[in-house]
Amino acid sequence: HAATELTPEQAAALKPYDRIVITGRFNAIGDAVSAVSRRADEEGAASFYVVDTSEFGNSGNWRVVADVYKA
């Protein structure tokens, strides 16, 4: 099962156990969220919340930071 994305309210009520950072070329924010979901799932997380997204220069590469939560 894939890790689910939390709302800001849900994330605020929970304590993350880790923070992950992924970088890559994403065509849309949805693609980045899917990549975070896969990584969170690999780490055994039940859910995640994207904290920050930023573009690296003009290369089209993105850096996505997310907190991950157990259950």
Rank of each mutant, 00 (worst) to 15 (best):
A2Q: 13
T4D: 06
T4V: 14
T4R: 14
L6P: 03
L6R: 02
L6C: 05
T7Q: 05
T7I: 04
P8S: 13
E9Y: 08
E9C: 13
Q10P: 02
Q10A: 09
Q10F: 05
A11V: 04
A11D: 03
A11G: 02
A12Y: 07
A13E: 12
A13F: 12
L14R: 11
L14N: 08
L14W: 07
K15Y: 08
P16G: 02
P16Y: 04
Y17Q: 01
D18S: 12
D18V: 09
R19Q: 06
I20R: 00
I20H: 01
I20E: 00
V21H: 05
V21W: 05
T23Q: 09
T23G: 02
G24N: 02
G24K: 01
R25P: 09
R25M: 11
F26D: 00
F26A: 01
F26V: 01
N27E: 11
A28F: 09
A28I: 07
A28N: 15
A28C: 13
A28Y: 09
G30R: 12
G30V: 12
G30A: 14
D31K: 04
A32G: 03
V33E: 04
S34I: 14
A35K: 04
A35P: 02
V36W: 00
V36E: 02
V36Q: 02
S37K: 15
S37M: 12
R38G: 05
R38Q: 11
R38D: 04
R38N: 06
R38I: 12
R38A: 10
R39W: 10
A40F: 02
A40E: 04
D41N: 15
D41C: 15
E43P: 01
E43H: 14
G44Y: 04
G44D: 04
G44C: 08
G44K: 05
A45M: 10
A45W: 14
S47D: 03
S47L: 08
S47G: 10
Y49T: 03
Y49N: 03
V51E: 00
D52T: 11
T53R: 08
E55A: 08
E55V: 12
F56Q: 11
G57V: 06
S59H: 09
N61A: 10
N61C: 15
N61V: 15
W62H: 03
W62M: 09
W62S: 02
W62N: 01
V64H: 00
V65T: 09
A66P: 00
A66V: 13
D67F: 14
D67V: 08
V68F: 15
V68C: 05
Y69E: 00
Y69Q: 00
Y69S: 01
Y69V: 02
Y69M: 00
K70N: 09
K70H: 13
K70D: 07
A71F: 12
A71E: 13
A71K: 11
